[in-house]
């Protein structure tokens, strides 16, 4: 992967810098580039700005009509309420317990779906057998299934398996519907690893498992990052499956968030809503901001070379 890192580091689009007029043009060009980038960044930050300012405003201020704009007084009460006091039904423990549920659910589901995707991608690209491409096609079509349509049969299946209403059941559902995308990611990545490498290893006597563990996996780090980020975001932010296949104390954070935000009859506490939303988004924000660099690097390393 050194080559990728190197290409990232040295990447550039050199500009003609010979003539003086070019330099002037260059400077105007740079100004335009920076200008448009900052303009877009401002546009992209607008909702975040609204969310953050709202979360530190006093509720009366919001109801008085100040939805956008600076807060008169900054208070972090809403954040505390959202984390440890906000009510989800009669249980007023804030988002904390559901945050933990979501972690307990997302981490195994991400690991399992990524692991299975890696093995599938490996088989489909390096151990092709008659029909393996058809199987890949069948898997891939699963990406486009509208999930609203599978809730009821899935519920029946979980009932038969004895997993209804439990976190393991939800982990299973996310793993199952995650396989399609993770397989796609790994297949597209492994395609670019030369077959000769595998063939040589076979001649040296390495078997199916050894080749996977000692050749494919070490090379797959960037795509593992991509797959994990994608799956983490999808699963962490899922509401539909969470609301369908868990109940009460087992609910993931999005279900609790929805209950805090979607008050049917009664006063909406917008500042708490926004603080709760920010808290619910922290792990995914963290993943994107911290791992964003690796994300692009991982994609560079082959995911897009379908």
């Amino acid at each position: 992967m050194a080559t990728n890192a190197a290409s990232l580091a040295t990447s550039s689009t050199p500009l003609a810098t010979n003539a003086r007029s070019f330099r002037r043009q260059h400077r105007i060009g740079r100004a335009v580039i920076y200008g448009s980038l900052f303009f877009m960044a401002a546009f992209y930050l607008m909702p975040l700005w609204v969310m953050i300012t709202t979360s530190v405003k006093h509720l009366d201020e919001i109801y008085a009509g100040s939805f956008i704009g600076l807060p008169q007084q900054i208070s972090f009460d809403a954040w505390r309420t959202a984390w440890s006091e906000a009510c989800n039904g009669t249980a007023c423990k804030g988002l904390k317990p559901y945050f933990i549920n979501s972690l307990l659910l997302t981490i195994p589901a991400v690991i399992m779906s990524t692991g299975i995707g890696a093995i599938n991608g490996y088989v489909i690209t390096k151990w092709r057998f008659p029909g393996s491409n058809v199987i890949f096609g069948l898997l891939l079509f699963g990406c486009f299934l509208p999930f609203q349509a599978v809730i009821l049969p899935m519920a029946q299946t979980l009932g038969i398996l004895g997993l209804a209403g439990s976190l393991p059941g939800l982990v299973l559902v996310h793993t199952v519907y995650g396989i399609a995308f993770t397989t796609l990611f790994f297949r597209n990545y492994f395609v670019s690893i030369p077959d000769e490498l595998v063939r040589a290893a076979k001649i040296d006597g390495a078997g199916f498992i050894r080749i996977f563990v000692s050749i494919m996996l070490p090379a797959a780090l960037p795509i593992i990052v991509v797959s994990c980020i994608w799956q983490f975001t999808q699963i962490w932010n899922d509401y539909l499956f969470g609301a369908s296949f868990t109940a009460g104390e087992n609910a993931p954070i999005t279900v609790a968030l929805n209950n805090i935000v979607n008050v049917s009859m009664g006063r909406k506490e917008y500042n708490v809503d926004m603080a709760a939303a920010m808290i619910a988004a922290l792990p995914t924000l963290f993943v994107y901001v911290v791992a964003g660099r690796y994300f692009v690097r991982g994609l560079t390393a082959g995911a897009v070379k379908g």
Partner: peptide, 15 residues
């Protein structure tokens, strides 16, 4: 540019 992808629409919708 990437952060919106991380947020759930349940609340960015309100913003």
């Amino acid at each position: 540019f990437l952060y919106p992808m991380a947020l759930s629409f349940i609340v960015t919708g309100t913003a």
